[in-house]
Design a binder for these strands. Structure first.
Lengths: 219, 219
DNA sequence: ATATATAGTTAGTTTAGTCTAACAAAATAA
DNA sequence: TTATTTTGTTAGACTAAACTAACTATATAT
């Protein structure tokens, strides 16, 4: 009955993430984010609707139900706990953990993840600053905004990375930018969507592509 | 090309284990050990033969090739490292680890298992006393024999448990028998395949079902 | 307001891994 | 050595998750 396959878990996870940054989630963006063709996503959505995990009517946007949101949160919990564990307890670097966590998150053993949680001392955030959902599905919300909305002359602290692929993390590494780094906005060139900042006493100009992925708080 | 699916990994693992205790491995015993029907095992064996992992001709016994043995060893390595890690680093008890390890062993990330290996200090034996294959596929062999072949009056040390399901391990726990426990044979009742032993100053009579699963060394 | 582009759907195919039913070969027992 | 049991095989069907091709609905742009 209530069994959720690994594939279904991936769809729920994507839907959850997409809902956070798109008003309306459609088959198209879902299929792009999972790298499957539209008909594949379409039929999976119907299956998830049958299971009461999403609300869906043809040609209308897809929405997760309460049940779907909770299920998605729990998968994200497993993913982020795993990333945290790999970094903190096994010596992985933050740019190596994503792929492995994608696999381990599907392990069917609540105890396994509870042990991680315990050994990590019930962390609230993962190595990329993303909040780790609690066992009941609740997630801490972060107060802040993206760096591309920062104002000239202000100081900020990076509190979360909104992307976690290797290329992005390698770029940050190369510039010495880390989670919780302090960053000063020197100039905002809004026309070109560029922003000039100072990090570690180093000046650099970053594009919207990067600055919109750095979630910050004024300090 | 050389990609081995999780399902194929399970077949290789079973074949490896069966080869250790049966002269000739057939479709029947393979299907029983994997809990699938014979035609399923039959077609999978053909696929593995195509991939050069097993030798097979209709109606003849199945044998792993060199390549198959190595592949199987590496899967068993991942399984046993995982069990060891769960017990030593995550506080699982020895009777809880099997099912979880069955899932984690299929994770595609050599680094993940190498990290475990390193953190465990390159262990040679898992929590049940089974040797952990090295990265090159070689396995340490254990000198010993099963307790049911023990002689009256001799002292033995349990060096490996040839079975690791919950029921068996719970039974051992209930009798205070552990890996590396010392055990004295008081009497061998060969007709009934029973053996009377003393463990922890406690006398008990055990059946062949158990005594043939305790691998011992004379001390 | 109509044409075009984008997004979504339907139908049918594929692959991996499983199954059942029916049959064939090999081993065992009478 | 013939009958019976056990083991193995073949053929065909099913399910999950993917695909392509063709078509339809909706949104956008001229």
């Amino acid at each position: 009955m209530g069994e959720i396959t690994s594939s279904e878990e991936n769809y729920l996870k994507s839907l959850y993430h997409l809902q956070l940054r798109e008003e309306e989630v459609g088959i198209k963006s879902l299929s792009l984010s999972l790298d499957v063709k539209m008909p594949t996503a379409n039929s999976m959505i119907k299956k998830l609707a049958d299971k009461g995990l999403v609300l869906y009517q043809s040609y209308k946007p897809i929405r997760l139900t309460k049940k779907g949101i909770k299920a998605a949160s729990l998968i994200i919990r497993k993913h982020r706990l795993t990333e945290m564990y790999l970094v903190e307890k096994m010596g992985f670097s933050w740019d190596e953990v994503h792929e492995v966590a994608e696999q381990i998150e599907h392990v069917k053993s609540p105890k396994f993840f509870d042990k991680m949680d315990e050994l990590l001392n019930f962390p609230s955030f993962d190595p990329h600053g993303s909040p780790i959902p609690k066992k009941d599905g609740t997630i801490a919300s972060l107060e802040g905004f993206i760096l591309s909305m920062g104002k000239k002359g202000k100081m900020y602290k990076i509190i979360s990375l909104l992307q976690s692929d290797k290329a992005f993390l390698n770029y940050l590494d190369s510039k010495g930018i880390k989670l919780y780094s302090k960053i000063e906005v020197l100039e905002v060139i809004s026309y070109e969507e560029l922003i000039k900042v100072k990090v570690n006493d180093f000046e650099l100009t970053i594009s919207d592509k990067v600055s919109s992925k750095l979630f910050v708080q004024e300090i």
